[in-house]
Structure formats: C-alpha cells, structure tokens
C-alpha cells in the first residue's frame, strides 16, 4: 500500500499529538463536569424554592445560557471580558468558566426535574412514619433523585465532551486543529491523509464517549 494516508498517522509524533489534542478538550470537560455537578445540585435545589424572586432569577439564568450558543459565550468570555474589563483570561480559563456556567445550568435543570418528579405521597408517607424533613430528604428524596440523575449526568458529560471542541475557535489547539495541521503538512505527499486523520479523530471521540454511554445504559436498566 504505497502512499497510503494511514502512514501519516505513524510519522513522527503525529498520533501522540492527536491524543494530546484530545486531552485538551477532555480535560476541560472533566474539570467543567466535576465543578458543575455540585454547583448544579445547589442550583437545582435553588430552582425548586417557592420564592418568586429566586424562581425568576434562576429562570433568566437558565434561559440565557440555553439561548446563547456556547460559541457566543466563549467569545464573550474570551474576547469580550478581556476588552471590557481588561482581565487577561487565558483561553483555558475562559473555556472552563463557560462550560461550568453551561454545565451548572443544565445540571441544575436535571436536578430540579428529578426533585419535582418525586410524588407528593412519598413525602406524606415519610412524614406519617415520623421522619423529619431532613430525614425524608436524606433517606427518601436523595436516593430516588440520584437514581434518576446518574444516567442523565453521564449523558450531560458526553455532550460536554463533544461540545468542548469549540475551544478551537478561541485559539486552543485541540484534536481537530492538530488533525488539520497534520493534514495540511502532508497535503501533497499523502492526499488521502485527511480521510485517515478524521477517521481516527472520530474513533477517538467514540472511544471517549462510548464507555460512558454504556455505563449510563447499564445504570438506567438497573435502577428502573
């Protein structure tokens, strides 16, 4: 197989560079998810408060984050904030901030949904058994909420991994950018390299997200 594009993968440190590129976005996703989960739980509990002001505030926040494309949020954080306040946020920090804001909103909405889906008679029967509000929350509400939340949280994580590739647009060298660089450098010698490189990137994303999806399905089945 002379001149096959696949050999480009094994030239120099190309494959390693791709992995490093993937790690750039995986790392941002991981940090964002780890921060978003506790913040989202708090935000979700905040959203279930009956107070009209807290309701309005959380509604506005959630809608704002949802309506704005993540790309716009990234630009606002990276270029806008730098201009407006003169803070010099690195691309890395901007990305983490944006994805934490996004993750908190989405996670919060999942938590809210799980909390309000617990039927009223679960609270009634716990109270009738003499449980205090805190005991009801710990032994009845939280375990049932968790069961619903874990698969949803995992799905959010995979969405996060896929979406973080947007950071390329604020100048970060993530996996797609690395791929493009490799393809460009070999454009004349190996015209078919593009197919192989993108194929491998596809595979890498698949390998990153697939086990997570499997886990989600398993948990969903077990905790019907």
């Amino acid at each position: 197989m002379q001149d096959s594009g696949i050999s480009v993968l094994f030239m120099g440190s190309n494959f390693l560079r791709l992995l490093e590129g993937l790690w750039v976005t995986l790392r941002i996703s991981l940090i964002a998810v780890i921060l978003s989960i506790p913040l989202g739980i708090l935000f979700g509990m905040f959203m279930t408060l009956k107070n009209p002001i807290s309701k309005a505030v959380s509604r506005v926040y959630l809608e704002f984050i949802r309506i704005m494309p993540q790309l716009v949020l990234l630009f606002i954080a990276y270029f806008g904030v730098t201009r407006a306040f003169g803070w010099n946020l690195s691309a890395d920090a901007s990305a983490i901030i944006v994805f934490v804001l996004w993750g908190t909103a989405e996670m919060g909405d999942l938590v809210r949904g799980a909390l309000i889906s617990i039927p009223k008679h679960q609270y009634d029967s716990a109270s009738a058994l003499g449980m205090t509000k805190i005991q009801t929350f710990i032994y009845v509400v939280v375990p049932q909420t968790m069961r619903r939340l874990i698969p949803l949280t995992i799905n959010l994580t995979t969405r996060m991994i896929k979406t973080t590739s947007l950071v390329v647009l604020i100048g970060m060298t993530e996996v797609l950018k690395v791929g493009k660089q490799i393809i460009d450098a070999n454009r004349f010698e190996y015209p078919t390299a593009a197919l192989w490189i993108y194929g491998v990137i596809f595979l890498l994303y698949f390998l990153a997200c697939w086990p997570i999806s499997i886990l989600a399905k398993k948990l969903e089945k077990r905790w019907r």
């Binding site: 008679h121 679960q122 009634d124 029967s125 009738a128 003499g130």
Partner: peptide
C-alpha cells in the same frame, strides 16, 4: 415540625395510593 415528627410515631397512617419507597 420537630414535635409533630415525635408525635407521629404514635399514630400510623396508610393511604389510598401505594406509597412504599420504590428504591
């Protein structure tokens, strides 16, 4: 709320809806 939780231990209640804890 504290006192009533205490008092409810003396008075059991069963409802129309099946209200066992599903988990």
């Amino acid at each position: 709320s504290k006192k009533i939780a205490q008092l409810r231990q003396k008075i059991g209640m069963v409802f129309q809806s099946y209200d066992l804890f599903p988990h």
